[in-house]
Amino acid sequence: MNSIRLLGVRSFNGSTTQIIPRRTLVNTGSRVRGMLRDPADYLVSSSGRRYPENATGMAPIISNLKNYLSQNSVEGIDDKVLLQVLTHKSFAHGKKPFNEKLSVFGVHLLKEISAIHLIESEASEGASVEGLNVDVLGGTLSKRLLHKSVLAQFTRLNIPGIEKDIFWRNRNLMITDPAVNGENVVLFDTILATVGAVNLIKGKGVASDFIGKAILSGENSLVELAKATISKPQENKSE
């Protein structure tokens, strides 16, 4: 059932010229050609959460990510930035700040730090350079390390319930496979955006420590998960 309401009146205070306030009629329900959709209609995530408009609404959504960061000694990132980390480009046709560029910033830092971690810690058959096993790079492990499915699995395991906090648009609600419906990509972008935000606000030193402590070490670390995905097909074959 469709309903039509007045979106609101926009006034421009401080302007010297007199501007007639703009009145916009918006439509709720099924789409009507030529009519604007009510923002309240589409500012809802795939999990049913409404996009917060103020700090009070923001707090329960970002609390999960905030706790994860504080557990790993990262504090002082503004709530608005954390909300942007949790917003994917697919949400609300890009009308709300999204995490695309933070994600790009994060991926480059993660590549650099994980490469240093691998050449310092992993053994290789090739000749090392000053004690660094550079031939590990370009191998299966280094490729799997930044694979979308591995990073998505890492995010699910280390920040439980984050998939419900992320604002994104599921391309098809009937598809439940996260590898097909886009959930893996969204989780991948979110964890990279988290790294990007820490780097942008706290600096590379803190971000590198965060990657070393939270992402590359521990039981559910990225390295362990990548190794598990490499060994899995072999186990199946032996079975």
């Binding site: 503004d78 930035v81 606000i201 600096g203």
Partner: peptide
């Protein structure tokens, strides 16, 4: 010596 803790907003992203 980098720190931008006062940063409240990051670039929104491109206009779609």
């Amino acid at each position: 010596d980098y720190s931008r803790e006062t940063l409240k907003e990051v670039d929104h992203g491109i206009v779609i």
